[in-house]
C-alpha cells in the first residue's frame, strides 16, 4: 500500500513537472535525464542481467541517430525515418552480437569497443555520407496526432511517456521466462546449457533487445537536439552510459535511472563551474570502482550502516567509560 502511494506520488510529480518546474532550462534537463535513463536501462539489460559488459553501446545509440537524421535529410517523413532507424539499429545490433558473442568477459569489452570505433570512424571520416565533424541538422520534430512538440514542456511529456513505456516493458521483460533464463545464463551458463537452453541465442536476443532500446534513446536524443555529430558515437559516450549503469547499481530497474539522473545533473552542474567534465568523469570512475564497487545505491547504504555502527560503538564505549 505504501509502495503504491509512493509510485502514484512519483508519477504525479513527474507528469506535472512542466507546471511546477519554473524555467525551461530545468525542464530540458529533466528530458535529458529521461533520455539517458532509457539508454542506461537498455545497457543494463546486458551489463546487469546478462553479465556482458559493452563499451560500445554509443555505436548502437548513434546508429539510430544517424540513420534517422540521414533519412529525414533525404526528404523522407518522420514515420519512415523512425522505422528505418529501428531497422538499422537492429541490424547493427545483430552484427554486434554475432561478432562479440564469440568471446566473453574482457574480450567482449574489447570487441564492442572496437566495433563502436568503426562506426565512429565512418561518421567522422566518410564526409560525403555523414557530413563529418559538422554533423547533420534536422529541421523539425515530429507532430504525432497533430501535436506540436516545439516547447520543452510538450517534448518532456512525450519523452516521459516513452520512458514510462520503456520501464513497463523492462519490468515485464525482467519477470518473463526469457528474463529469468537470461539471468540464468549470466550466473550459470554451463548449467543452463546442460538444461537444454541455447545460451548463445538467449544472449543474442538480449543484445537485440538492448539495441532496440538504445535506438529508442538515440531517436529521442536526435529529436531533442535536432542535431547529430560524430560525438554521439565516441568512447566518451559509451563510458558515460556505462557509468550511469554502474553508479546506480547494476541489475536493478531503478539503479540505471538513478545513475542517469546523477550523471546528467553532475555534468550540468559541473559544466556551469568548471570546464573539466572529462577529468571529473574519470575521477568518478576511479572513485566508484575503488570505494563503492557494488554501485552507488547499495554503496551509500553500506557507508551509512558503517557510519551508524561506528557512532553506536563509540556511544557504547562512552557509556561504559562513564559507568
Amino acid at each position: 500500500m505504501r509502495e503504491r502511494c509512493l509510485i502514484i506520488v512519483t508519477l504525479m510529480s513527474l507528469v506535472s513537472l512542466p507546471l511546477w518546474m519554473g524555467s525551461d532550462y530545468y525542464i530540458n534537463i529533466a528530458s535529458q535525464i529521461l533520455i539517458w535513463a532509457i539508454f542506461a536501462l537498455a545497457l543494463n539489460v546486458l551489463v546487469g542481467w546478462s553479465g556482458l559488459v559493452s563499451l560500445g553501446h554509443a555505436g548502437l545509440f548513434g546508429m539510430a541517430c544517424y540513420t534517422g537524421a540521414w533519412l529525414l535529410e533525404a526528404g523522407w517523413g518522420h514515420f519512415t525515418a523512425v522505422l528505418g532507424a529501428f531497422a538499422m539499429t537492429i541490424l547493427v545490433s545483430a552484427i554486434f552480437g554475432a561478432l562479440s558473442l564469440r568471446t566473453r568477459g574482457i574480450g567482449f569489452i574489447m570487441i564492442t569497443l572496437a566495433i563502436s570505433q568503426i562506426l565512429w570512424g565512418i561518421a567522422y571520416r566518410w564526409i560525403g555520407l555523414t557530413n563529418g565533424d559538422n554533423g547533420i541538422i534536422i529541421s523539425a520534430r515530429p507532430t504525432p496526432f497533430g501535436i506540436e512538440m516545439d516547447t520543452p514542456g510538450v517534448f518532456y511529456i512525450f519523452t516521459l511517456i516513452v520512458f514510462l513505456l520503456t520501464m513497463l516493458i523492462m519490468a515485464i521483460f525482467y519477470q518473463s521466462p526469457f528474463g529469468v533464463s537470461l539471468r540464468g545464463t549470466r550466473d550459470q551458463s554451463r548449467r543452463m546449457s546442460a538444461l537444454g537452453f541455447n545460451v548463445w541465442l538467449i544472449r543474442f536476443f538480449a543484445i537485440l533487445f538492448s539495441g532496440f532500446f538504445s535506438g529508442v534513446a538515440g531517436l529521442l536524443f536526435l529529436y531533442y537536439h535536432q542535431y547529430v555529430s560524430p560525438h554521439v558515437l565516441s568512447l566518451l559516450n559509451s563510458a558515460e552510459v556505462l557509468l550511469m549503469v554502474i553508479s546506480g547499481g547494476t541489475g536493478t530497474l531503478l539503479g540505471p535511472v538513478v545513475g542517469a539522473g546523477l550523471v546528467v545533473v553532475i555534468k550540468n552542474v559541473a559544466s556551469a563551474y568548471i570546464e573539466r567534465w572529462n577529468m571529473l568523469l574519470g575521477v568518478i570512475f576511479v572513485a566508484i570502482v575503488i570505494f563503492m564497487p557494488e554501485g552507488l545505491v547499495p554503496g551509500t547504504q553500506r557507508l551509512f550502516r558503517w557510519v551508524f555502527s561506528r557512532i553506536k560503538s563509540i556511544g557504547a564505549a562512552i557509556k561504559s567509560e562513564a559507568s
Partner: peptide, 21 residues
C-alpha cells in the same frame, strides 16, 4: 577484471584532460 578495466578507462579520461589543460 571489470573494475580494472573501468579504472584504466577513468585514468585515460583523466590523463587526456590533464594533457589538454
Amino acid at each position: 577484471e571489470l573494475a580494472q578495466v573501468l579504472v584504466t578507462l577513468g585514468l585515460a579520461f583523466i590523463i587526456a584532460d590533464v594533457c589538454l589543460l
